[in-house]
Structures are given as structure tokens and as C-alpha cells.
């Protein structure tokens, strides 16, 4: 499908916050309709979060009344404290904070390694495009669709043979491998859309492959890197099964403790603690989204959108 003249790209990545759509009509019923629609849509998206937050602030007797949407009569953060530091998961009663650092330990290197490798892949692919390379890339994309459980047995055997099973490098490797299709796709499309002149100029100056990559391409790739960081952080932070299987006992992620608190089969369910624990676990990706929402759209506009 090719790309638009490169000038439009530059213009776009600078002026994205100025919508290019039709000129707005100032005040009219249609305008009210636009806001009406957006507000209704926003309500639909908000309700679950609202329910989670107010439930986490209620006590159990109030929750049993079944007033799902009512504001708490007597707001309390007890459930939050319990979820963070006291809730029991097995013999230990240290809440979900136990796994927080493990999740950081897994997420940070996994995000970094998978983005470095994905960007190098994408860069290489953006100008090394033999049929063979494209076939490999096709296979990689196909891999994006393979449910990972399908390849779990050979992967366990492979990591075992490499001596990585149940270790931090093991889980980083797994996340990197599963993140590679989408990461490669993102960076390949982004580098393909960069202005040709940049590359040409560098070549004239005698720069080689790696030099161009690290000195010119990577600094240019900040918008798409932000997208990659967001997607990977969310995916890896929220992962439960891969961490459980490959990370080893020392590194079990936070989601394992969340699961222990939330999906208890026997005994009383403390919905307020469940909700607090859920929000606490989702906090990191949420903060990443809120902090970088603007860059996310910008980066996607610059990279993912182009074929």
C-alpha cells in the first residue's frame, strides 16, 4: 500500500493535536448531539471502574445490601490496606505487595529487551527485504495468532534444556519471544515510513548499519517506542499464566497473588478486598496509560496505522 509523501508524516507527527476533520459548526443541535453521544459512551466506559472503586470503599455488610451503584455510606480504606499488606495467600499474609517487586523485576527487563530486539528486527526488515526475510516475517505474524498454550510443552522443554526454566532470564526470554511479532510489526512499519533523506544523508557520511540505527533511527523512533512500551507493559504486567509457569517460585508476579485473593473457591468472598486488590494490580498499566495517553495516539498515528 505504500505511504504518503514524507512531508505529511513530519507535519502529522508535529501537529497531531490539531484535528484535521471537518470544520466544526459552532453551536447547533448537531453539536449537542456530538457531546450527548460522547457523554453516553463515556458513561458506558466508566461504569465498571466506578463500581470497582466505590465497592472497594464499602464494608462487607453494605455490599451485601446489593446497592451496586450507591455511594458508600461510610467510606473506608480498610479494604485497600488489607489487600495491599494483610490479605492471606496461603501461609503468608502479606497482601499483594509481595508480588509487586517481582512484577517490576519481570516487567522492566522484559519490556526493555523485547523493545530493543523488536526495534532491531523492524529496522533490519525495513530495508532488508528479500523474499526469505518476508517469509520469516510472515511466519512471525502468524505466530501472533498462536495461543501460547499450544506451544507450552515444547517451550518448557526448550527452556529446561537451556537451563532457563523457572528463572528470571527464562521468563524474560518467553515474554520477549511472544512480544516479538507485534513489536517487529510496529517498528518495521514505523521505520518504513521515515523520510528517506535522513537515511541517505547518513549513508553519504559513511555511517554503517548499527551507527545509523543507534544514532539516527532510535532517537527518531521515540513516538513508536512509547506505543511499544505501553503495549508491552500492559501485556506483561497483566500476564498470569506465563509468569506462573516460567518465572519460578522466587519471581512469581503480582497477578498470582491477586488470583489467590480473588478466585478463592472456599470461604467468604470479600468483594471490597477483591476490588481493592484488582485496582491496585491494574494501577501500574493505568498510570502508564494516563501519563502517556497523548503520546500513545501520536505514536500509533505515526506507526501502527501505516501498512
Amino acid at each position: 500500500m505504500g505511504s504518503k509523501p514524507q512531508t505529511s508524516l513530519l507535519k502529522r507527527s508535529m501537529g497531531l493535536d490539531n484535528p484535521w476533520g471537518p470544520r466544526p459548526i459552532k453551536t447547533s443541535p448537531a453539536r449537542m448531539g456530538v457531546y450527548g453521544f460522547l457523554i453516553v459512551a463515556a458513561l458506558f466506559f466508566c461504569i465498571p471502574l466506578y463500581v470497582m472503586v466505590i465497592t472497594s470503599l464499602k464494608g462487607m455488610p453494605e455490599i451485601r445490601l446489593g446497592e451496586l451503584f450507591a455511594l458508600p455510606n461510610d467510606p473506608t480504606v480498610a479494604a485497600w490496606l488489607k489487600a495491599w499488606a494483610e490479605a492471606c495467600t496461603g501461609v503468608q499474609c502479606n497482601g499483594i505487595k509481595e508480588g509487586f517487586w517481582n512484577s517490576i523485576k519481570i516487567t522492566v527487563p522484559s519490556v526493555m529487551v523485547s523493545i530493543v530486539i523488536g526495534s532491531i528486527n523492524g529496522y533490519a526488515l525495513s530495508f532488508w527485504r528479500s523474499r526469505g526475510a518476508n517469509l520469516i516475517f510472515g511466519l512471525l505474524l502468524f505466530g501472533a495468532f498462536v495461543p501460547f498454550q499450544v506451544v507450552i510443552f515444547p517451550l518448557i522443554i526448550f527452556t529446561r534444556e537451556m537451563g532457563m526454566y523457572g528463572t528470571l532470564p527464562g521468563i524474560v526470554f518467553i515474554h520477549t519471544a511472544f512480544g516479538m511479532p507485534i513489536m517487529t510489526l510496529l517498528f518495521r512499519n514505523y521505520f518504513s515510513s521515515l523520510p528517506e533523506e535522513l537515511f541517505k544523508a547518513a549513508r553519504v557520511d559513511g555511517a554503517g548499519f548499527w551507527q545509523i540505527f543507534f544514532q539516527i533511527m532510535m532517537p527518531m523512533a521515540i513516538p513508536i517506542t512509547i506505543v511499544a512500551v505501553i503495549l508491552q507493559t500492559t501485556g506483561i504486567w497483566n500476564d498470569f499464566l506465563l509468569g506462573l509457569i516460567f518465572a519460578g517460585r522466587e519471581n512469581l508476579p503480582m497477578t498470582v497473588q491477586l488470583n489467590n485473593i480473588v478466585t478463592t473457591t472456599f470461604g467468604v468472598r470479600e468483594y471490597n478486598v477483591n476490588m481493592a486488590a484488582t485496582i491496585l494490580t491494574a494501577l501500574v498499566p493505568l498510570v502508564v496509560y494516563l501519563a502517556s495517553g497523548k503520546y500513545f495516539v501520536r505514536g500509533i498515528a505515526a506507526g501502527a496505522v501505516k501498512g
Binding site: 495467600t89 496461603g90 501461609v91 503468608q92 507450552i152 510443552f153 518448557i156 522443554i157 527452556t159 529446561r160 526454566y165 523457572g166 506462573l244 509457569i245 516460567f246 519460578g248 517460585r249 512469581l252 498470582v256 488470583n259 489467590n260 485473593i261 480473588v262 478466585t263 478463592t264 473457591t265
Partner: peptide, 23 residues
């Protein structure tokens, strides 16, 4: 050394997979 995994199904599969993984 306690490894609690909620849900018998989860816990049993992890045990199986870790035995297969040599851990």
C-alpha cells in the same frame, strides 16, 4: 516454602508443568 496457587486446576497444572520443566 509455601507456594499457594488459587484454584485446584491452576495449581495442578503448574505442578505438572514444573515437573516437565525439571523444576
Amino acid at each position: 516454602a509455601d507456594t499457594a496457587i488459587a484454584g485446584g486446576e491452576n495449581a495442578r497444572s503448574v505442578t505438572m508443568q514444573r515437573i516437565l520443566g525439571g523444576d
